[in-house]
Design a protein around this nucleic acid. Structure first.
Length: 258
DNA sequence: GAGATTTGACCGCC
DNA sequence: GGCGGTCAAATCTC
């Protein structure tokens, strides 16, 4: 793993830890229901980390009572599909929203009635499966025992965004810590990148003095809807803006400055 | 017209 | 042969 990736993982781990601490604090200090918000944050961190960590069979996560990704019980004799997906990483995620926004763009390629369930199962693959040779798949099915919940099973890993990211950010592969978000924007269609909410270009402040990153994204408005929440997951950097991963280590990066 | 979705047919494994 | 998963033509939407 390159130095830049190590730094990225380090920064994500720090952010994850910060979110856990904030959760603990706010649970005792606020009547605002923060559980769904933080669960989504933590899940997002875990998912991002899983993209970098090929050695783990599951994304690292500590679960709460809600939205508990459950490991899929391996088949006794895993059935290979036509593409030989045997052995691919997979995990499941329960959500009340069948269209839970996981930050990726999916294309539906099938739907079937499953013998063991009265509900149909939908099959999706990465929208860039062909363009970027990404083999990520997901299946979405209403849970038989809990009709209000939908189980999304992810199979394989997204290599599309990793390929696009590293191919167009040679600096990272060469040891630099600089990420050019404008390049990412060019390389990845809007449907793939979690869309930042509209914000003034000069409203992005990284204030090392108070050890916080002020995103000025209307942080007084708690958004618990997943789709809206994703708008906050990448700092709204406009073309020409840079983020230095090393900078993150110089202050406690808190993406949800409250 | 291009891209996304639907749906019946087909394939491979058990 | 049954079943889950995928393919691909038809259809839909913008």
């Amino acid at each position: 793993m390159s130095h830049g990736v190590d730094k990225a993982v380090e920064a994500l781990l720090r952010g994850q830890e910060s979110a856990y601490r904030l959760k603990t604090v706010l649970e005792h200090a606020s009547s605002v229901p923060t559980e769904p918000l933080f669960d989504s944050v933590l899940h997002s961190f875990s998912f991002a980390l899983s993209l970098f960590s090929s050695s783990n069979t599951q994304p690292p996560h500590r679960e709460s009572s809600q939205r508990k990704p459950t490991p899929v019980v391996a088949r006794k004799s895993p059935k290979k599909n036509s593409h030989g997906e045997e052995g691919l990483e997979q995990y499941s995620h329960d959500s009340p929203n069948p269209h839970h926004n996981d930050g990726f763009s999916w294309r539906k390629y099938g739907q079937k009635t499953i013998k063991t369930s009265s509900h149909q199962r939908c099959y999706y693959r990465c929208a860039y499966a062909k363009d970027r040779n990404c083999n990520a798949l997901k299946r979405v099915q209403q849970i038989e025992d809990s009709p209000s919940l939908f189980r999304t099973t992810y199979v394989g890993k997204h290599i599309c965004e990793v390929n696009a990211f590293f191919q167009l950010n040679d600096d990272i592969c060469n040891g630099s810590k600089m990420i050019r978000f404008d390049k990412i924007d060019q390389a990845m269609p809007d449907s793939v990148i979690p869309q930042p909410v509209p914000v003034e270009q000069d409203a992005i402040l990284i204030e090392s003095t108070d050890q916080n990153m002020n995103l000025e994204c209307g942080s007084n408005e708690f958004l618990v809807d997943d789709d809206q929440l994703w708008g906050y997951q990448i700092p709204p950097c406009s073309p020409g803006n840079f983020m230095f991963l090393d900078d993150l280590s110089e202050f406690d990066y808190n993406p949800f400055h409250l």
